[in-house]
C-alpha cells in the first residue's frame, strides 16, 4: 500500500502522487516515511527529498526548509522553496552560500531569533551546494 505524498510550495501544489517511501530532511535528522507512519509534524532543514518507487529513487527535490505533516496515509511537505535536483545550478548555490555565510557572520550572536534564522539559512545553503553533486535520480 503506497503513501500519498504532497509537495506544496506557497505558490502552488507542486506534486501529489502515491509513492512507496519518501525520505525527508527533518531538523533532527533524515526521516524515512513509509505507509502507516505515526502522526508527526516536523520542521525541515535544507536538504534532499527522495521519492522511492519499486526500491529505486525516482525523483529528487531540494527543499530549502519548511515543514512536514505526516499521517498514516499521507505526507505533506510544505516547502519554503523547492527545486528539482536536476535543475539546481552550482553557480546559484555557491552564490547563496556566500550570501548566507556573510549574513551569518554579520549576525548578533546574542539575539537568539536572528541567530537561529541565520544559521538555518547557512545550513540550507550548504545543503544546496552539497546537493548539486549528489547522484541524480534514476529514471
Amino acid at each position: 500500500m503506497p503513501i500519498t505524498l504532497e509537495i506544496i510550495s506557497p505558490e502552488k501544489l507542486l506534486l501529489s502522487k502515491p509513492v512507496d517511501m519518501v525520505v525527508i530532511p527533518g531538523t533532527e535528522g533524515d526521516l524515512g516515511i513509509l505507509p502507516g507512519h505515526s502522526k508527526l509534524i516536523t520542521g525541515l532543514r535544507g536538504g534532499l527529498v527522495d521519492l522511492y518507487e519499486n526500491g529505486k529513487i525516482t525523483e529528487r527535490f531540494f527543499v530549502s526548509g519548511g515543514f512536514a505533516e505526516v499521517t498514516e496515509e499521507h505526507c505533506s511537505i510544505l516547502a519554503d522553496t523547492i527545486t528539482r535536483q536536476s535543475e539546481l545550478d552550482s553557480g546559484v548555490a555557491a552564490e547563496t552560500l556566500a550570501k548566507a555565510q556573510a549574513d551569518y557572520d554579520a549576525t548578533d550572536m546574542m539575539d537568539s531569533n536572528a541567530y537561529r534564522e541565520a544559521s538555518d539559512k547557512l545550513i540550507s545553503a550548504q545543503a544546496m551546494v552539497d546537493s548539486v553533486s549528489v547522484k541524480r535520480a534514476d529514471h
Binding site: 506557497p10 527533518g26 531538523t27 502522526k39 509534524i41 516536523t42 520542521g43 515543514f67
Partner: peptide
C-alpha cells in the same frame, strides 16, 4: 493532541509563526 512534534512545540512554533504571518499576507 495525537501528533508527535519534532523538534518540540516551542521551537517549531517559533519557526511556524513568522511563516504563517507571511502566508496570511500572501
Amino acid at each position: 493532541a495525537d501528533y508527535e512534534v519534532e523538534p518540540d512545540d516551542g521551537t517549531l512554533l517559533d519557526r511556524l509563526l513568522p511563516r504563517n504571518l507571511a502566508v496570511q499576507i500572501y
